[in-house]
Simulated scan of single mutants.
Amino acid sequence: MTNLSVLDGVLSDLAAESQQLDAWVASLPADGWATVTTPQGWTVAHQVGHLHWTDLASHSAITEPDEFARGIKSAASDPGGFIDEAAEEMAALPPEQLLASWREGRVALDAALRTVPDGEKIPWYGPPMSPASMATARVMETWAHSHDVAEALGLPIPQTSRAKHVCHIGVRTRGFAHLVRGEQAPTVDVRVELTGPDGDVWAWGPQDAPERITGSGYDFALLATRRRHVDDVDVHAEGDHAAHWLTIVQAFAGMPGADPVRMAER
């Protein structure tokens, strides 16, 4: 089976992130699930529904790869809309049914990820992923959508070291962030040194890189999930390539969508 020592840690963080969101929405009245959370009109129900749908897709990729492959072909016919359509379908469910289904799906995905043989990759809409990489991606998405929900509901958002998973993907996808915007990926190395909420330093890239990014790990995660404008975070760049990267960094697949708006302009 896959390397459980690494996977266990990521799945533990995924469970904690999911349970936090679960606690925020479990006591909401039905009209609370209709609270709008994004400029595009996604409600709390859309956010939870999207997470549930992605869990189901991830589970299918592991347990029913042929069925998942057919789903990829279907998605290819509407690459810009199939995610919104799935979220809309899930959001139409009664809140108690959606919540119960999401809980069941989380447990099923956790179990499925632990069965993947060591070294085997899981098919996905982008490049195939290891179980640990897929779990890390689920942490990133849950972290980002949880932030949307908490902000819309006016809830305090705890800063935890789980944001490191988001930062890790944001750093790893530097080249993709350029390519998805039609830019050539730069060859200049960038050293990233971020400070986590517990005071730990999270670092990527060569120590002698000619350019650097420093600052708050939590804020970099907000940049990487495109939840904040670069002017509103405690993240700093040294060098032109690093400075530009901060304006386009993204930890998720697909098109970047509209650029974040400055807090003063909201």
Results as ranks from 00 to 15, higher is better:
residue 35 T to D: 04
residue 215 G to L: 12
residue 43 T to P: 10
residue 87 A to N: 05
residue 216 S to I: 10
residue 31 D to N: 14
residue 120 E to N: 07
residue 227 R to E: 06
residue 36 V to L: 06
residue 219 D to N: 03
residue 196 G to L: 05
residue 233 V to N: 03
residue 181 R to Q: 00
residue 130 S to Q: 08
residue 144 A to T: 07
residue 175 G to P: 10
residue 47 Q to E: 08
residue 94 P to T: 12
residue 149 V to Y: 09
residue 153 L to S: 11
residue 120 E to S: 07
residue 120 E to F: 04
residue 34 A to H: 14
residue 108 A to P: 05
residue 41 G to H: 04
residue 78 D to V: 13
residue 187 T to C: 02
residue 95 P to V: 09
residue 45 A to E: 04
residue 61 A to M: 01
residue 67 E to D: 15
residue 205 G to S: 07
residue 104 E to I: 02
residue 22 D to E: 15
residue 180 V to E: 15
residue 16 A to M: 04
residue 173 T to E: 13
residue 68 F to S: 07
residue 256 P to G: 06
residue 213 I to M: 08
residue 82 F to M: 02
residue 186 P to M: 01
residue 129 M to E: 02
residue 119 G to D: 07
residue 106 R to M: 05
residue 205 G to N: 11
residue 255 M to E: 11
residue 116 V to P: 04
residue 74 S to N: 09
residue 56 L to D: 00
residue 186 P to G: 03
residue 257 G to E: 01
residue 239 G to H: 12
residue 211 E to Q: 15
residue 121 K to G: 00
residue 161 S to M: 07
residue 118 D to T: 15
residue 212 R to V: 03
residue 46 H to A: 01
residue 101 S to V: 10
residue 4 L to D: 13
residue 116 V to A: 02
residue 224 A to E: 02
residue 17 E to H: 03
residue 228 R to P: 09
residue 29 P to T: 01
residue 105 G to R: 11
residue 236 H to W: 02
residue 4 L to E: 15
residue 24 W to G: 01
residue 145 H to E: 06
residue 18 S to E: 00
residue 180 V to G: 01
residue 165 H to L: 04
residue 53 W to D: 01
residue 98 L to V: 12
residue 252 F to G: 00
residue 74 S to A: 14
residue 81 G to P: 13
